[in-house]
Amino acid sequence: MATTAVTSAGIASEAPRSDFGRVLAQRERRFAAALLAPAFLALLATTTFPLLFLVYTSAFRMDLAMPFTNGFVGFENYQVLLSDERFWTSLLVSLVYTGSTVALQVIIGLALALLVMDMKRGQGCFRVIAILPVVLSPAVVGMIWRTFMLAPEFGIVDFLAINAGLGSKNWLGDPTLAMVSVIAIHTWQWTPFAFMVLLASLASLPEDIYEAARLDRASAWQRFRRITLPLLRPAIVMVIIMRTMVALTAFAAIFTVTAGGPGTATEILNLYAYRKSFTELSIGYGSALAVALLIVTIIISGILFAMRRAK
């Protein structure tokens, strides 16, 4: 008798609470939907819709200079693309540009972070200076390098080259040197990013492991190879992923310096898609190039994320 009373009382008090709970949960859902709606509508309109429209556009011949030739062409743009030598060249330039800038950023950034970590004084100085390149517009950076740094003779880089006995060089006019220049500029601007992230990560490593390693008489190289590097791996992979995504779609830093030139020497795929669409005004084919860039981006990020998961 007593037990039934307890259970019925329990049920009686349970029932309204779960009802109340359901109402609360429903209210919470509605509230969440109302809060999310503006941002998600804006994201749909500015990212998802353009993506769908881009894929649609890539199935058309859409030439703003010759509108009378426009029309649906299906996959023709993609067929042209596969046999377009300029596309393959730009893809290769993209991969060289991305690979070399990311590798340089990580290697120099890591080396410098290790160096600064051991400094007893002056760390603050590095932290402040490192911010400067990172916050600047790549467009302004490109402009400064193109003129005051790389101009023949009075540009500082050329001045240094002359004094080093190399002679005055045509830094942006020679295909190879132009590529080296745009890679150097990108590396100059973004190495501080790798440096700051890796320095922050280094600073958070536990000190006692190193103490133990020192007691075991591990050499500096062993400590780096066996302790620092494995512990830093997540941060390094994160830097690689982030910087790769940006380098693949770099625009201003090349556009303002060489505009892809001389010829197509520094024309990465991103820039080719832009030039095709807005300089040569063939928007349909430009769209196909942009879709190709998106596919390349997805493949590369897929590989990088697999790398991140693999231990």
Binding site: A25, E28, R29, F31, A32, A33, L35, L36, F40, L43, T46, T47, T48, F49, P50, L51, F53, L54, T57, M245, L248, T249, F251, N270, A273, Y274, S277, F278, I283, G286, S287, A290, V291, L293, L294, T297, I298, S301
Partner: peptide, 29 residues
């Protein structure tokens, strides 16, 4: 807040950043 599809919503926000800007500007133009 708790609501259905929260994980997907967060993922969607991240995924939108994968789009190359040049792929957005062509249709937008």
């Amino acid at each position: 807040l708790r609501f259905r599809g929260k994980k997907f919503a967060g993922f969607y926000v991240l995924a939108t950043q994968m789009l190359p800007p040049v792929g957005i500007i062509i249709p937008y133009f």
